[in-house]
Nucleic acid binder design. Structure first.
Lengths: 194, 194
DNA sequence: CGATTACGTTCACATAGGTTAAGAAATGAC
DNA sequence: GTCATTTCTTAACCTATGTGAACGTAATCG
């Protein structure tokens, strides 16, 4: 288990923890399997866990007043996923999290993250850097959303996450890009005609 | 100075530091004034500082290939502003930061943030929480950008930041919302006719 | 103070992407 | 394998926002 944590979790930011810290880390999460299309966090309920995916794929989304699904984030092996807002505030969630494939996850409760961070400065540091990088990436994504056409956002997505294209249904990619499935289909057609 | 830091900086997340920690914190930044319309961080150069605004207003933006300005963030008294990506990675910046009004700022270098965090677990914790909250807010903003009309985004902006409406030129608000100044003008006209 | 520039408004027209609807293709259940 | 369901594609039409240009007013600066 320690090896799994060390390999999977810590390589995600390339920091090294001592064996002791690593052990503290590895005692806290529990491992869990979820079947494909399982909802693991539900809008309106408090999101009590952070999930680190060791196998499979999942995504988070929210549903607006019109009933449209809006994809926030995709996550595959080596990625973290949660409803940040709900998880950290303890207030009711705004996002759903659902598996796309059968998944293996490491599940961390808020208490375990808090204990880990309280108990080890370096683990707290690890999480700070993790969130910081996520923030910078999200800021970049927002600028693109605000200033580029759907076509160029799709091209950038395809370049950035080529392995997602085969694994994730197109209508979810469309939603992630902020457009309708029909529009993505049209864009793909135009691109293939060029 | 300690009082200023304690009052200004720490009230922003409602955590309390010991006097000792507070003192460590207050020794590191320097205070600086900037005139209106001063560019304090420049795209293409490394962004070496995090700014905490104690007076005035500023904003960050980037300029795309077509030469359009794209506003990322507004910041007034009590807010932090920086080019996160550049600041933390040490790579060349992607955003500009410019003052909107004459400003007073507390300026933190990367070394000072790193030293503060290394030297005090609680300060590291402070910054983790700070970034976490910013991340959750940004994620929420992105979902709105992806799924709502410009009109409803404007209404939400006006409700969330009523004090910004008077202080910030409309063409910058338009850019923040991802639309053109003419479109915002049209939207405002339609709203006033309702 | 007047000159100049920056900002906001309006309008006519263009276009990206949304909508609705239908059918084709792929996937999954039995 | 067959049937049902989910996903993808296409097309005709619609709407929100972009574009370019003109004009008025407010802010800024000499």
């Amino acid at each position: 288990m320690e090896a799994t944590i060390k390999e999977n979790v810590f390589k995600t930011i390339g920091e090294h923890l001592s064996d002791e810290e690593c052990e503290a880390f590895s005692e806290l999460p529990f491992q869990k399997s979820y079947a494909r299309k399982t909802i693991i966090a539900d809008e309106g309920k408090v999101c009590k866990y952070v999930y680190f995916i060791t196998k499979g794929a999942a995504y988070s989304y929210y549903i607006n007043e019109d009933g449209d699904k809006n994809v926030i984030q995709f996550a595959i092996e080596g990625h973290w996923i949660t409803d940040q807002y709900s998880f950290f505030s303890g207030k009711k969630g705004i996002f759903m999290i659902e598996t796309l494939e059968d998944c293996e996850m490491l599940v961390f409760s808020k208490e375990s993250i808090d204990n880990l961070c309280r108990g080890s400065h370096r683990i707290e540091h690890f999480f700070r850097i993790l969130v910081q990088n996520a923030f910078a990436a999200l800021q970049y994504r927002l600028t693109k959303t605000n200033s580029e056409t759907a076509e160029s956002r799709y091209l950038e997505f395809a370049e950035l996450y080529p392995h997602f294209l085969n694994r994730i249904p197109q209508y979810l990619i469309a939603s992630y890009l902020g457009i309708r499935p029909q529009s993505l289909s049209r864009i793909r057609k135009e691109l293939s005609e060029k």
